[in-house]
Amino acid sequence: MAGREWVRISGVAALCALFVALVGCGGQPATDTGRAEVQRLLDRRADALLERDPAAYRATGSTAGYDRLREVPLAAWSYRVTDLDLTGDATATAAAELSYRLQDHDRAPVTTGRTLALARDADGGWQVTSDRPAPRSAQQLWDQGRVVAARGDHSLVLGVGRTEESLRDFAALADRAVPAVSDAWGTGWGQRVLVLVPDSLEEMAGLLGSPASSYRGIAAVTTGEVGGAADGPADRIILNPEAYGLLGPTGKQVVLTHESTHVATRAHTGPATPLWLSEGYADWAGYRDTGRAPAEAAPELARAVAAGDVPQELPADGDFGFTDDPTALSQAYESGWMACRLIAEQWGEERLGAFYRAVGAHGQRDGAVESALEKVLGTSEEAFTRAWREYLGEQLTG
């Protein structure tokens, strides 16, 4: 979930596409022997990387990947060849699935598609000449340059185009975020975060496999599966260095605490969880210890309320879409935050956490919020909405 801080084939081409898995367009049939040979090559390449053996890695081809991954704490790295296209007498292209784990963070592998270019060496064996994301697969951080690492007490920060010293600043913010989240949510989560700092907005978008326009003005995004298991790959907090860099010290801390909250609450965030709750709770945790007044932290909503335009309902999920109306988007986030702030003040912080968990545990979207409001807070959806609207008037005016 994002943080608030902010193919046409016809004729011969279709026939070619039909057989690409067997021979590759314009290529020759790839024998089982050839595929096994390439698999052995990639196995050696993976072993050399994990063992930090530059000579063995160099013997398998291009060393660009080794140099870029030198500082990344890898616990596992392996390829599985899924297709081989013999594109010439001495060249080939392999499709493979890469699986890797980061030490102390990923409890299960991250898997991603890769396309590897191969060439025959003087002895007739294969060597890797390039390793890049497969079509429709997102980039990995090392695709963008040499990765630099900085470790904190509760964090690992990986960046491109930055020094270790500069990355320690991000680690310090993350190290403050984790205890703050645990104080609000509880300690029943990994209490570690993984932060990726690409060099630009465009490279952030590359990691997410989306156009840069989708994230302009957004300071950070957290990736992970809703209801993700504790034994899965770690969530990645991905920063937009352009938008994040415009924030002041408090804003930067709020963003990292917000995103760390998404990491902590992931296992209890289900299909039934509305965005006003997941984003509002993350904002509540982010602002919890800042001392920011509601009108200061929710300026767009405060302006609307002061003008007599009090929202009639809590924001729908569609209101959180990144559109050309940043004011409406801000009001959606601020509305969710104020709803969670109301619960924390009127029913208590423990009940707010229990309410979040109860909504996420509901088997279906319909009735999830209403059921949790009744069971945990002893109120109805209608009464809660009315209390929230009154709370906006009280807190954002005067």
Rank of each mutant, 00 (worst) to 15 (best):
D104V: 00
L342G: 00
D366Q: 12
A48G: 08
Q39S: 15
G321C: 04
T269V: 01
L194V: 05
F320E: 07
D47Q: 15
Y79G: 04
G61F: 00
R107C: 02
A171R: 11
S214W: 12
H105M: 13
A383L: 02
R162L: 14
G378S: 02
A282W: 05
H258D: 09
A212M: 12
V193G: 09
E313M: 09
Y287W: 14
T290N: 05
A119S: 13
R52I: 09
G227I: 04
T60V: 09
G11A: 06
A95G: 13
S62Y: 02
A134V: 07
L377T: 03
L86G: 09
Q103C: 01
A304M: 02
G190Q: 14
T112K: 00
T261S: 06
A298R: 03
P54E: 12
H268R: 12
G209Q: 05
R114C: 03
L201S: 13
T385I: 02
D235P: 15
P274C: 10
P311T: 06
G161K: 12
V128F: 02
Q28I: 00
P179D: 09
D169K: 10
L98N: 03
L167F: 08
V359R: 01
Y287N: 09
A230T: 14
S335G: 13
Y57N: 06
M338W: 04
D309I: 00
H362I: 02
L173Q: 15
V254T: 09
R146G: 12
L141I: 07
L141T: 03
G228M: 13
A339N: 06
G27E: 12
A383N: 07
K252G: 10
R236A: 11
